[in-house]
Design a protein around this nucleic acid. Structure first.
Lengths: 185, 185
DNA sequence: TATTGTTATACTCTATAACTATA
DNA sequence: TATAGTTATAGAGTATAACAATA
């Protein structure tokens, strides 16, 4: 990672109160987190592709369906759960449907809606893929750590995650409102 | 995150020796790490786009050049540093060159090579963007944590990262050799 | 009128291989 | 022959808006 980030000429003009600002140690932690996240997601994506020829989003769709008791969801609800745009879900659902991993049918209750369902084939593939998924995570992430490490890591990351979820997207100027279409990365 | 991952029918058939396998707590830690990584990188990408209309890869290119004393690198060296395919770097360099943030010129030493250089404009933009970059990381990641937390987190993640770097891509069957073309996500 | 989902369009990015030129 | 870089091609994914059907 470039150390240009620590260039004094480039640091923000905030008051340096000692522990309120980025320093070398914090940068190193940030880079470590970035790299671990990137390596882990890369490994997971490789595994998903190898074991099921699935992208991460496609896996998310199958897993979300598999997780919903009935195995079925409306397109909109699916999009909301995985935080993805509707047209994006339509596109991905089209690909999964071609492979017979899901099926789509109009809802009987509300004829505007489309209900997506996991097929038997889709459920089977999901089971196969999840097993490799957990194996990768165990090998890449947990094999290195003691139970204490895991507990501490979980406590810290849980706190950061909760804070991030609340954090407004900007310091000032709250956005008009969050639109579904913005969600798709 | 779907709990289908914890479905007993889907767990790998490994011996459950107590601390060698994924359990609920570990899954929660994995999900927290994934979510923190995703939220952080999403926030960083938003910031880069907002403050400089740059993608992360483009920022990496500028930062890597800015970090190299001279502000210049060969295309191949640049590709190696940011772990990206050559044709991908050619494509991104084309975009950055159109915006006059970098320039390309044939090398005088080896006429096969192209030397990429940060322009004054590119250096200026880099400085502007980095300041927002560190601010985002401070706000999203470190504002929540004590100095102790940061130290512990750094120690654990550093260990995981070192291990991940060594880890062979598969359990068995080592690949023929790592090709540059594979690196570009 | 609002909502659900699809489609059309255009653009970005990636992967692969072919290609030019220099060494 | 090998290396450096570009280009051509095709495909995946995304964002936007327009659209038809239903509520």
């Amino acid at each position: 990672m470039p150390s240009a980030v620590t260039d004094p000429a480039a640091t923000p003009p905030e008051p340096q109160t000692g522990n309120s600002h980025i320093n070398e140690e914090r940068l190193a932690v940030y880079f470590a987190l970035s790299e671990v996240g990137a390596l882990l997601s890369h490994a997971v994506e490789q595994q998903l592709r190898r074991d099921g020829d699935l992208t991460y989003v496609q896996f998310q769709i199958l897993a979300t369906l598999g997780d919903s008791g009935s195995g079925s969801l409306r397109m909109t609800d699916l999009a909301d759960r995985i935080v993805y745009s509707r047209s994006g879900v339509t596109y991905q659902a089209g690909r999964l449907e071609r492979r017979r991993l899901i099926s789509r049918a109009p809802s009987t209750e509300d004829e505007r809606s489309t209900v997506v369902s996991l097929t038997a084939e889709g459920r089977k593939l999901l089971g196969q893929v999840i097993s490799g998924h957990t194996a990768v995570v165990q090998r890449m992430l947990f094999a290195t750590l003691s139970d204490d490490d895991i507990a501490v890591l979980g406590a810290i990351l849980g706190r950061v995650r909760d804070r991030m979820r609340q954090a407004p997207p900007r310091s000032a100027a709250p956005r008009k409102s969050r639109r579904a279409g913005e969600a798709g990365h």
